[in-house]
């Protein structure tokens, strides 16, 4: 890969890394279950962008798009199941505080 292409890729990598940082920050700090799911979504979007960027800069656009399509389906499945669990927890506890889920200590 030529030097110029590498520099443009590094720009993408810079912003993707920042997205990772904000996603992990949100994941660690938040107390609401739904916000945890949003943070996971942000992380997966960052990875999607990384796959597309790598695919573009190495010329393998077909392969990277196929991978991304599968990743999106995985994302939907995870969000559906996690959202269902959050709803169920809400029906038990009447709120979505993760710190309240401390039944399994010890």
């Amino acid at each position: 890969m030529s030097g110029e292409n590498w520099q443009s890729f590094l720009t993408f990598a810079f912003f993707i890394a920042l997205m990772f940082v904000s996603g992990f920050y949100c994941l660690l700090i938040t107390r609401n279950m739904l916000r945890i799911i949003i943070a996971l979504e942000l992380l997966i979007k960052a990875v999607t962008l990384l796959v597309i960027a790598v695919g573009f800069y190495t010329g393998m656009v077909g392969l990277s798009q196929s991978l991304v399509i599968t990743i999106i389906v995985i994302e939907v499945a995870i969000v559906a199941v996690a959202g269902g669990i959050a709803l169920r927890v809400f029906r038990y506890n009447d709120n979505l505080d993760v710190r309240r889920l401390r039944n399994l200590r010890g």
Binding site: F20, L27, L40, L43, I44, A46, V47, L50, V51, V54, G55, T58, M60, L63, S64, L67, I71, I74, I78
Partner: peptide
Amino acid sequence: VATVLMLTAIALFL
């Protein structure tokens, strides 16, 4: 989280 790590690695392997 493990998914994100593994996918990042696969992307870099490309």
